[in-house]
């Protein structure tokens, strides 16, 4: 690697590796995420995509290698610290608080950097000052009408929309979306593509998805992972026509 870190890379990993008891889930990955772009990570199941996400967000500690974000070494930081530095994520499996309303979710996200949440002697009405912004964010994902309903009652697509709003509420520089369209109906997929494009303005997005239409419509860069290693990186069209990718996905016989 050259000594000068290119400024238009928001996130860089070098030789990033994660071993689980002898099994290498992520092997020596050098990833460069351009600032302002939408970057897709694709690859068959077990390629290490979610592990990579967990490494980038601090939920897993790398075995070796480094992660640099916005010129700062963030290797080994705790998830809650990484959020405040500017990386937010959504989860592959919808991960919400079923007994809370959507509004309460957004208030929780918006109050996170303010420190108001440590005030155990204050009324929860203190959170009302995040109400307007919460509703604005929910409106952005089309969920303002259901703001006062507990998310346990929501349909799947609605929960995914709240996930997106939550990630945006943290106002991250880098947004990591783990399979934002997994398990969705066709129309929900279209709506989500539109949503991601809308919330991507002014941010950098990295997402994982198995739906190649989603990848084609959203991503300006695509990285293909296989067995924990980077196989190919390029634009969607480059990657799609790459011999190695075709082999990896379809097997030797079709190549």
């Amino acid at each position: 690697m050259s000594a000068t870190v290119s400024v238009d890379h928001l996130l860089t990993t070098r030789s990033l590796t994660k071993n689980f008891r002898g099994f290498t889930a992520v092997r020596s990955v050098d990833l460069d995420i351009r600032r302002g772009g939408i970057h897709a990570l694709v690859g068959p199941n077990g390629a290490g995509k979610t592990t990579l996400f967990n490494l980038l967000t601090g939920f897993l500690k790398p075995t070796s290698g480094s992660i640099t974000f916005d010129g700062r070494d963030i290797t080994g930081l705790q998830p809650e610290d990484i959020v405040h530095i500017g990386i937010a994520r959504s989860f592959q499996i919808t991960s919400l608080f079923d007994n809370m309303t959507a509004l309460e979710h957004l208030q929780l996200a918006l109050s996170s950097p303010t420190g108001v949440s440590l005030r155990f002697w204050r009324s929860e009405r203190r959170l009302d000052r995040f109400r307007a912004r919460s509703l604005e964010l929910l409106d952005q994902v089309g969920m303002a009408d259901l703001a006062n309903r507990e998310v346990g009652h929501y349909a799947y697509g609605q929960k995914r929309a709240v996930e997106l709003a939550l990630a945006v509420a943290l106002d991250p520089k880098l947004l990591l979306l783990d399979e934002p369209t997994a398990g969705m109906s066709l129309e929900d997929v279209d709506r989500t593509i539109e949503l991601v494009l809308r919330i991507a303005t002014g941010r950098t997005v990295v997402f994982v998805d198995h739906n190649m239409r989603v990848v084609g419509e959203l991503a300006d860069r695509v990285t293909v992972l296989q067995q924990g290693e980077i196989l190919v990186e390029g634009t969607y069209d480059e990657v799609r026509q790459d011999e190695k990718v075709i082999t990896a996905y379809l097997g030797q016989a079709h190549a």
Partner: peptide
């Protein structure tokens, strides 16, 4: 885990 991902220690 979700609470951590929202930035809570």
């Amino acid at each position: 885990a979700r609470a951590r991902a929202l930035g809570y220690d």
